[in-house]
Amino acid sequence: MIKPLTKTQLVAEMSERLDTDKKSAAAMLDALSAIVLEQVAAGGAVTIPDVGKISCRDRPERMVRNPATGEQLKKPADRQVKVTVTKRLKDSVNG
C-alpha cells in the first residue's frame, strides 16, 4: 500500500509539475484549502475538476441510540460535509 502524501511532498510535486518554486506552490495549496473551507462552511460547494465535489448538507433532528446503554436520545439538527468523487477518479482507481 502506498503511503499518503504529506503536505511537504504534495507541495514539492506541485512545484515540480508547475515549474515554480515550493513557496509559490505552498501558497497555491493554502489558497485552495482556504477557498474550500470558506465555501463549504458557508453552506456552498466546491468542485475540483477530475477529483470531486465537496459540499455541506443539513441533517435534520433525529433519534439515535446509545450503543452502550440502548437508551434513545434526540440528536439535534446539524451539518455534515459530503465528498462526491468523480467518475474519472473512480475509473482511474479501478482500472
Rank of each mutant, 00 (worst) to 15 (best):
L5H: 05
L5C: 12
T6Y: 03
T8V: 13
L10Y: 05
L10V: 01
V11G: 09
E13T: 00
E13S: 14
E13L: 00
M14R: 11
M14N: 09
S15C: 03
R17Q: 05
L18T: 06
D19P: 07
D19S: 13
D19V: 05
D21T: 05
K22W: 01
K22S: 11
K23Y: 14
S24C: 02
S24A: 10
A25D: 07
A31L: 06
L32F: 12
L32Y: 12
A34K: 13
V36W: 12
E38K: 08
E38S: 08
E38C: 07
Q39L: 10
A42S: 14
G43H: 03
G43N: 01
A45G: 06
A45N: 13
V46N: 11
V51A: 12
G52C: 00
K53A: 04
K53M: 08
I54W: 07
I54A: 10
I54Y: 14
S55E: 06
S55G: 04
C56F: 07
R57T: 03
R59I: 14
E61T: 11
E61Y: 04
E61F: 13
E61K: 15
V64S: 05
R65E: 10
N66K: 04
N66D: 15
P67C: 04
P67F: 05
A68K: 15
A68M: 14
G70K: 07
G70T: 00
G70I: 12
G70N: 08
E71H: 06
Q72G: 10
L73N: 14
K74P: 03
P76E: 05
Q80G: 11
Q80N: 02
K82W: 04
K82V: 13
T84G: 13
V85L: 02
T86W: 12
T86K: 15
T86D: 01
T86Y: 03
K87L: 04
K87C: 09
R88K: 01
L89Y: 12
